[in-house]
Protein backbone atom coordinates (compact mmCIF):
# COMPACT_ATOMS: atom_id res chain seq x y z
CA UNK A 1 0.00 0.00 0.00
CA UNK A 2 2.79 2.34 0.90
CA UNK A 3 4.32 1.76 -2.49
CA UNK A 4 1.09 2.69 -4.19
CA UNK A 5 0.80 5.88 -2.25
CA UNK A 6 4.40 6.61 -3.03
CA UNK A 7 3.89 6.16 -6.72
CA UNK A 8 0.74 8.23 -6.75
CA UNK A 9 2.29 10.99 -4.72
CA UNK A 10 5.34 11.20 -6.92
CA UNK A 11 3.19 11.27 -9.99
CA UNK A 12 1.00 14.07 -8.82
CA UNK A 13 4.06 16.15 -8.09
CA UNK A 14 5.57 15.23 -11.40
CA UNK A 15 2.35 16.05 -13.17
CA UNK A 16 2.07 19.47 -11.67
CA UNK A 17 5.71 20.10 -12.39
CA UNK A 18 5.37 19.15 -16.02
CA UNK A 19 2.21 21.14 -16.39
CA UNK A 20 3.84 24.28 -15.14
CA UNK A 21 7.03 23.83 -17.03
CA UNK A 22 5.26 23.14 -20.27
CA UNK A 23 2.91 26.04 -20.01
CA UNK A 24 5.73 28.31 -18.99
CA UNK A 25 7.81 27.10 -21.88
CA UNK A 26 4.99 27.63 -24.34
CA UNK A 27 4.46 31.06 -22.97
CA UNK A 28 8.10 32.10 -22.96
CA UNK A 29 8.94 30.82 -26.38
CA UNK A 30 5.80 32.12 -28.01
CA UNK A 31 6.50 35.58 -26.71
CA UNK A 32 10.21 35.68 -27.22
CA UNK A 33 10.45 34.80 -30.87
CA UNK A 34 10.90 37.55 -33.39
CA UNK A 35 7.74 38.89 -34.89
CA UNK A 36 4.90 40.95 -33.64
CA UNK A 37 2.54 38.61 -31.85
CA UNK A 38 -0.37 41.01 -32.07
CA UNK A 39 0.00 41.48 -35.80
CA UNK A 40 0.29 37.78 -36.42
CA UNK A 41 -2.79 37.07 -34.39
CA UNK A 42 -4.66 39.78 -36.24
CA UNK A 43 -3.65 38.29 -39.56
CA UNK A 44 -4.78 34.84 -38.59
CA UNK A 45 -8.05 36.22 -37.30
CA UNK A 46 -8.89 38.61 -40.06
CA UNK A 47 -7.12 37.19 -43.06
CA UNK A 48 -4.09 38.30 -44.91
CA UNK A 49 -5.90 40.24 -47.62
CA UNK A 50 -7.82 42.31 -45.16
CA UNK A 51 -7.52 46.03 -45.51
CA UNK A 52 -6.41 47.99 -42.47
CA UNK A 53 -4.60 45.26 -40.66
CA UNK A 54 -2.38 47.56 -38.58
CA UNK A 55 -5.35 49.02 -36.75
CA UNK A 56 -6.59 45.57 -36.04
CA UNK A 57 -3.21 44.61 -34.70
CA UNK A 58 -3.27 47.52 -32.31
CA UNK A 59 -6.73 46.58 -31.23
CA UNK A 60 -5.62 43.00 -30.65
CA UNK A 61 -2.67 44.21 -28.65
CA UNK A 62 -4.92 46.18 -26.35
CA UNK A 63 -7.60 43.59 -25.99
CA UNK A 64 -5.22 40.82 -25.13
CA UNK A 65 -2.97 42.89 -22.93
CA UNK A 66 0.02 41.96 -25.04
CA UNK A 67 1.95 45.07 -24.23
CA UNK A 68 2.10 44.32 -20.53
CA UNK A 69 5.39 42.99 -19.19
CA UNK A 70 5.83 39.26 -19.72
CA UNK A 71 6.01 38.43 -16.04
CA UNK A 72 2.70 40.12 -15.46
CA UNK A 73 1.10 38.24 -18.33
CA UNK A 74 2.39 34.92 -17.04
CA UNK A 75 1.30 35.49 -13.46
CA UNK A 76 -2.05 36.55 -14.76
CA UNK A 77 -2.27 33.23 -16.56
CA UNK A 78 -1.28 31.25 -13.47
CA UNK A 79 -3.91 33.04 -11.45
CA UNK A 80 -6.54 32.22 -13.99
CA UNK A 81 -5.58 28.57 -14.13
CA UNK A 82 -5.86 28.35 -10.38
CA UNK A 83 -9.45 29.39 -10.82
CA UNK A 84 -9.80 26.85 -13.61
CA UNK A 85 -10.12 29.58 -16.19
CA UNK A 86 -7.96 28.40 -19.02
CA UNK A 87 -8.21 31.45 -21.14
CA UNK A 88 -9.66 32.21 -24.50
CA UNK A 89 -8.16 31.30 -27.83
CA UNK A 90 -6.56 34.34 -29.36
CA UNK A 91 -7.66 33.29 -32.79
CA UNK A 92 -11.33 32.46 -32.59
CA UNK A 93 -12.16 33.83 -29.18
CA UNK A 94 -13.70 30.69 -27.76
CA UNK A 95 -12.61 29.22 -24.44
CA UNK A 96 -9.57 26.99 -24.82
CA UNK A 97 -10.57 24.21 -22.47
CA UNK A 98 -13.43 22.77 -24.56
CA UNK A 99 -11.25 22.92 -27.66
CA UNK A 100 -8.45 21.02 -25.95
CA UNK A 101 -10.84 18.51 -24.41
CA UNK A 102 -12.41 17.87 -27.77
CA UNK A 103 -9.00 17.22 -29.30
CA UNK A 104 -8.16 14.93 -26.41
CA UNK A 105 -11.35 12.99 -26.94
CA UNK A 106 -10.50 12.41 -30.58
CA UNK A 107 -6.91 11.48 -29.81
CA UNK A 108 -8.10 9.11 -27.13
CA UNK A 109 -10.49 7.42 -29.51
CA UNK A 110 -7.84 7.07 -32.17
CA UNK A 111 -5.32 5.86 -29.64
CA UNK A 112 -7.56 3.25 -28.09
CA UNK A 113 -8.61 1.82 -31.43
CA UNK A 114 -5.02 1.83 -32.67
CA UNK A 115 -3.78 0.09 -29.54
CA UNK A 116 -6.61 -2.39 -29.84
CA UNK A 117 -5.72 -3.24 -33.42
CA UNK A 118 -2.05 -3.42 -32.57
CA UNK A 119 -2.58 -5.77 -29.65
CA UNK A 120 -4.83 -7.99 -31.75
CA UNK A 121 -1.89 -8.54 -34.04
CA UNK A 122 1.04 -8.23 -31.66
CA UNK A 123 -0.21 -10.58 -28.95
CA UNK A 124 -0.69 -13.67 -31.06
CA UNK A 125 2.38 -13.02 -33.19
CA UNK A 126 4.53 -12.19 -30.19
CA UNK A 127 3.45 -15.22 -28.23
CA UNK A 128 3.90 -17.62 -31.10
CA UNK A 129 7.31 -16.26 -31.95
CA UNK A 130 8.35 -16.05 -28.31
CA UNK A 131 7.68 -19.71 -27.78
CA UNK A 132 10.14 -20.68 -30.49
CA UNK A 133 12.93 -18.19 -30.25
CA UNK A 134 15.31 -19.83 -32.62
CA UNK A 135 13.15 -20.60 -35.57
CA UNK A 136 13.14 -19.03 -38.99
CA UNK A 137 9.85 -17.46 -38.05
CA UNK A 138 11.60 -15.36 -35.45
CA UNK A 139 14.10 -14.01 -37.89
CA UNK A 140 11.43 -13.24 -40.42
CA UNK A 141 9.23 -11.38 -37.97
CA UNK A 142 12.22 -9.47 -36.61
CA UNK A 143 13.17 -8.30 -40.08
CA UNK A 144 9.60 -7.58 -41.04
CA UNK A 145 8.90 -5.51 -37.97
CA UNK A 146 12.08 -3.53 -38.45
CA UNK A 147 11.14 -2.88 -42.03
CA UNK A 148 7.64 -1.77 -41.11
CA UNK A 149 9.00 0.67 -38.61
CA UNK A 150 11.54 2.07 -41.06
CA UNK A 151 8.93 3.29 -43.48
CA UNK A 152 7.50 6.57 -42.25
CA UNK A 153 3.94 6.47 -40.99
CA UNK A 154 2.60 8.93 -43.51
CA UNK A 155 3.86 6.80 -46.40
CA UNK A 156 1.97 3.87 -44.90
CA UNK A 157 -1.04 6.12 -44.47
CA UNK A 158 -1.12 7.19 -48.07
CA UNK A 159 -0.64 3.61 -49.24
CA UNK A 160 -3.53 2.41 -47.11
CA UNK A 161 -5.74 5.21 -48.35
CA UNK A 162 -4.90 4.46 -51.95
CA UNK A 163 -5.53 0.77 -51.44
CA UNK A 164 -8.59 0.67 -49.21
CA UNK A 165 -10.36 3.91 -49.88
CA UNK A 166 -9.63 4.57 -53.50
CA UNK A 167 -8.97 1.29 -55.23
CA UNK A 168 -11.19 -0.99 -53.15
CA UNK A 169 -13.57 1.67 -51.91
CA UNK A 170 -14.18 -0.14 -48.67
CA UNK A 171 -13.50 2.75 -46.33
CA UNK A 172 -13.81 6.53 -46.35
CA UNK A 173 -10.77 8.67 -47.00
CA UNK A 174 -10.56 11.22 -44.25
CA UNK A 175 -12.54 13.02 -41.58
CA UNK A 176 -14.22 11.97 -38.42
CA UNK A 177 -17.93 11.86 -39.10
CA UNK A 178 -18.75 8.31 -38.09
CA UNK A 179 -16.95 5.41 -36.46
CA UNK A 180 -15.75 3.96 -39.78
CA UNK A 181 -13.55 7.00 -40.27
CA UNK A 182 -11.32 5.88 -37.44
CA UNK A 183 -10.34 2.60 -39.04
CA UNK A 184 -7.75 3.72 -41.58
CA UNK A 185 -5.84 6.13 -39.34
CA UNK A 186 -5.92 3.63 -36.48
CA UNK A 187 -4.69 0.86 -38.76
CA UNK A 188 -1.83 3.02 -39.98
CA UNK A 189 -0.71 3.75 -36.45
CA UNK A 190 -1.27 0.15 -35.40
CA UNK A 191 1.18 -1.02 -38.05
CA UNK A 192 4.17 0.56 -36.38
CA UNK A 193 2.87 -0.08 -32.88
CA UNK A 194 2.37 -3.76 -33.49
CA UNK A 195 5.78 -4.07 -35.07
CA UNK A 196 7.47 -2.97 -31.86
CA UNK A 197 5.00 -4.63 -29.50
CA UNK A 198 5.31 -8.02 -31.11
CA UNK A 199 9.08 -7.85 -30.89
CA UNK A 200 8.96 -6.97 -27.23
CA UNK A 201 6.39 -9.59 -26.39
CA UNK A 202 8.43 -12.21 -28.19
CA UNK A 203 11.74 -11.27 -26.59
CA UNK A 204 10.27 -10.91 -23.16
CA UNK A 205 8.42 -14.22 -23.34
CA UNK A 206 11.49 -15.99 -24.65
CA UNK A 207 13.56 -14.61 -21.81
CA UNK A 208 11.05 -15.67 -19.21
CA UNK A 209 10.75 -19.16 -20.55
CA UNK A 210 14.49 -19.57 -20.53
CA UNK A 211 14.90 -18.18 -17.07
CA UNK A 212 15.84 -20.40 -14.14
CA UNK A 213 12.76 -19.89 -12.03
CA UNK A 214 10.52 -20.97 -14.83
CA UNK A 215 12.49 -24.16 -15.34
CA UNK A 216 12.48 -24.67 -11.61
CA UNK A 217 8.76 -24.20 -11.40
CA UNK A 218 8.22 -26.80 -14.04
CA UNK A 219 10.60 -29.25 -12.40
CA UNK A 220 8.84 -28.65 -9.12
CA UNK A 221 5.92 -30.33 -10.70
CA UNK A 222 3.59 -27.48 -11.30
CA UNK A 223 2.03 -29.59 -13.86
CA UNK A 224 -0.79 -27.57 -15.23
CA UNK A 225 0.64 -25.80 -18.15
CA UNK A 226 -1.67 -22.94 -17.88
CA UNK A 227 -0.69 -22.11 -14.30
CA UNK A 228 2.87 -21.98 -15.50
CA UNK A 229 1.77 -19.87 -18.30
CA UNK A 230 0.16 -17.58 -15.83
CA UNK A 231 3.40 -17.25 -13.87
CA UNK A 232 5.41 -16.86 -17.00
CA UNK A 233 3.11 -14.29 -18.47
CA UNK A 234 3.03 -12.23 -15.35
CA UNK A 235 6.76 -11.88 -15.37
CA UNK A 236 7.02 -11.44 -19.07
CA UNK A 237 4.42 -8.76 -19.12
CA UNK A 238 6.37 -6.10 -17.29
CA UNK A 239 8.43 -4.88 -20.20
CA UNK A 240 5.41 -5.30 -22.42
CA UNK A 241 3.24 -3.12 -20.25
CA UNK A 242 6.02 -0.57 -20.05
CA UNK A 243 6.31 -0.53 -23.80
CA UNK A 244 2.60 -0.24 -24.37
CA UNK A 245 2.45 2.53 -21.83
CA UNK A 246 5.08 4.47 -23.68
CA UNK A 247 3.26 3.91 -26.92
CA UNK A 248 0.04 5.14 -25.38
CA UNK A 249 1.73 8.29 -24.13
CA UNK A 250 3.23 8.96 -27.53
CA UNK A 251 -0.15 8.54 -29.19
CA UNK A 252 -1.26 11.81 -27.76
CA UNK A 253 1.06 13.95 -29.72
CA UNK A 254 3.23 11.79 -31.86
CA UNK A 255 0.57 11.22 -34.46
CA UNK A 256 0.79 14.60 -36.10
CA UNK A 257 1.55 13.30 -39.57
CA UNK A 258 -1.37 10.87 -39.44
CA UNK A 259 -3.75 13.47 -38.12
CA UNK A 260 -2.74 15.90 -40.84
CA UNK A 261 -3.13 13.27 -43.52
CA UNK A 262 -6.50 11.97 -42.33
CA UNK A 263 -7.82 15.30 -41.10
CA UNK A 264 -8.37 13.81 -37.68
CA UNK A 265 -8.80 16.65 -35.16
CA UNK A 266 -6.63 15.25 -32.38
CA UNK A 267 -4.07 16.81 -30.09
CA UNK A 268 -1.29 16.71 -32.68
CA UNK A 269 -3.25 18.79 -35.15
CA UNK A 270 -4.31 21.12 -32.36
CA UNK A 271 -0.72 21.68 -31.39
CA UNK A 272 0.36 22.17 -34.99
CA UNK A 273 -2.29 24.78 -35.68
CA UNK A 274 -1.68 26.55 -32.40
CA UNK A 275 2.06 26.65 -32.97
CA UNK A 276 1.83 27.98 -36.49
CA UNK A 277 -0.75 30.59 -35.58
CA UNK A 278 0.96 31.47 -32.29
CA UNK A 279 -2.24 30.93 -30.34
CA UNK A 280 -0.61 31.10 -26.93
CA UNK A 281 -3.51 30.27 -24.59
CA UNK A 282 -4.37 27.16 -26.59
CA UNK A 283 -0.72 26.12 -26.56
CA UNK A 284 -0.49 26.56 -22.83
CA UNK A 285 -3.69 24.69 -22.09
CA UNK A 286 -2.77 21.92 -24.49
CA UNK A 287 0.69 21.75 -22.97
CA UNK A 288 -0.72 21.32 -19.50
CA UNK A 289 -3.13 18.67 -20.72
CA UNK A 290 -0.37 16.81 -22.53
CA UNK A 291 1.89 16.86 -19.53
CA UNK A 292 -0.83 15.57 -17.25
CA UNK A 293 -1.78 12.83 -19.64
CA UNK A 294 1.79 11.63 -20.05
CA UNK A 295 2.17 11.49 -16.32
CA UNK A 296 -1.16 9.74 -15.92
CA UNK A 297 -0.17 7.09 -18.44
CA UNK A 298 3.21 6.58 -16.84
CA UNK A 299 1.62 6.27 -13.43
CA UNK A 300 -0.86 3.70 -14.67
CA UNK A 301 2.02 1.73 -16.10
CA UNK A 302 3.90 1.90 -12.83
CA UNK A 303 0.89 0.75 -10.87
CA UNK A 304 0.20 -2.08 -13.26
CA UNK A 305 3.79 -3.22 -13.01
CA UNK A 306 3.50 -3.17 -9.29
CA UNK A 307 0.46 -5.36 -9.45
CA UNK A 308 2.08 -7.76 -11.84
CA UNK A 309 5.47 -8.09 -10.29
CA UNK A 310 6.43 -6.08 -7.24
CA UNK A 311 10.15 -6.54 -7.67
CA UNK A 312 10.02 -5.32 -11.22
CA UNK A 313 9.47 -1.82 -10.02
CA UNK A 314 13.04 -1.60 -8.99
CA UNK A 315 14.15 -2.64 -12.44
CA UNK A 316 12.01 -0.16 -14.22
CA UNK A 317 13.10 2.78 -12.19
CA UNK A 318 16.68 1.63 -12.66
Amino acid sequence: MKKVVGILGKSILRGLGIAFCVSGLCFAVAHLIPGDVALEIAMTRYGESDVGIIDRADRVREEEGLSLPLAVQYLDWIGKVARLDFGISLIDKTPTLPVVLRALKFSALLGVVALGFSLCVALPVGIVVGLRPRGKFYLVTAMLSSLIVSIPSFVWGISLIVLFALKLKWLPVAGFLSPTYVILPAATIALTLSATSSRIIAVSLAETINSPYYAFARHKGLSELWTLFFHGLRNASVPVVTCIGMQAASLFGGTIAIETLFNWPGVGLLFLNAVTSRDIPVLQTAGIAMGLICVAVNTTVDLLCLVLKPTARLERLG
Binding site: G35, D36, L39, E40, I41, A42, M43, T44, E48, I53, T276, S277, R278
Partner: peptide
Protein backbone atom coordinates in the same frame (compact mmCIF):
# COMPACT_ATOMS: atom_id res chain seq x y z
CA UNK B 1 3.40 31.87 -41.72
CA UNK B 2 1.82 34.31 -44.10
CA UNK B 3 1.33 36.69 -41.20
CA UNK B 4 5.09 36.94 -40.79
CA UNK B 5 5.28 38.69 -44.15
CA UNK B 6 3.10 41.44 -42.75
CA UNK B 7 4.96 41.75 -39.48
CA UNK B 8 8.35 41.85 -41.20
Amino acid sequence: NSSVIASR
